[in-house]
């Protein structure tokens, strides 16, 4: 077993939802620093809601969120970003009518640190450098996903929340995305909460996993030999 490290993200008893409904009802989850945790689960089980709640985009109804032991419950997205959180959303994730460059610029508050940040993400996805003035909406599905991930890496976050980054993406691109995530983890010790439905991709990068069902964590564990079979048990019909 891996030695338990310092806890990066601690979610305790989180309850959140829309309108009259609780989509997530009491989730607790801890991720050690420097690890990638894959959060699996079928559609509509609350994975995106969890990420939005942590990111300050949905008001929490109950529970606390801690980052490096500091209570960050109820912080605004701006404050969380400044504190080292990053977010790669799934729903309406890009400004379709803005160029690649403008989409990336919007991750930063001013243009001073733009050049080095661009250099870093171009290292993972060189095609971006050649097409800076192309509108994001004209990119293919896989290219858009790479742009979303790049933007979330512009500020070099300590903790990255990633929502279904491999959805509808061809295997070769999934591999490049995996390389970028692992690269940042190894280089800077970034921690990742990876919401996924692609089991193969998730297990190829994650250190640990958890399965979400009907707003609760159903089961969780290390990424060991039995992981695939245990997760499949929850995902199959």
């Amino acid at each position: 077993m891996r030695e338990a490290g310092r806890t990066k993200l601690a979610i305790a008893g989180l309850r959140s939802g829309y309108g009259a409904t609780d989509v997530i009802a009491g989730i607790s989850l801890e991720i050690p620093a420097g690890e990638i945790c894959a959060l699996m689960g079928k559609n509509g089980m609350g994975k995106t809601t969890l990420l939005k709640s942590v990111m300050g985009l949905l008001p929490l109804r109950e529970g606390r969120v801690g980052l490096d032991g500091e209570d960050i419950t109820g912080w605004t997205p701006a404050r969380l970003l400044a504190r080292g959180l990053g977010y790669a959303p799934q729903e309406l994730p890009l400004f379709q009518d803005l160029t690649i460059l403008d989409n990336l610029r919007l991750a930063l508050r001013d243009d001073r640190a733009l050049a080095p940040a661009l250099e870093r993400v171009f290292g993972y996805f060189p095609f971006l450098a050649e097409r800076l003035n192309q509108k994001a909406g004209t990119l293919s599905g896989g290219e858009q996903k790479m742009l979303i991930l790049s933007r979330s890496l512009m500020l070099q976050p300590d903790l990255l929340l990633v929502d279904e980054i491999s959805e509808g993406v061809q295997p070769s691109v999934v591999q490049r995305i995996a390389r970028a995530l692992l690269g940042e983890c190894e280089r800077r010790g970034m921690t990742v909460l990876l919401v996924e439905q692609n089991l193969g991709f998730a297990l190829s990068v994650a250190h640990r996993w958890a399965v979400l069902k009907l707003g609760h964590i159903q089961e969780s564990g290390e990424n060991d030999a039995a992981a695939h079979a245990r997760i499949m048990e929850h995902l199959k019909i």
Partner: peptide
């Protein structure tokens, strides 16, 4: 037929992406 098919299993584990 559907529940036991490999295709559906593949779709739901994300392996069937184009």
């Amino acid at each position: 037929e559907v529940v036991d098919s490999d295709l559906v299993r593949a779709i739901y584990s994300g392996a069937a992406n184009a």
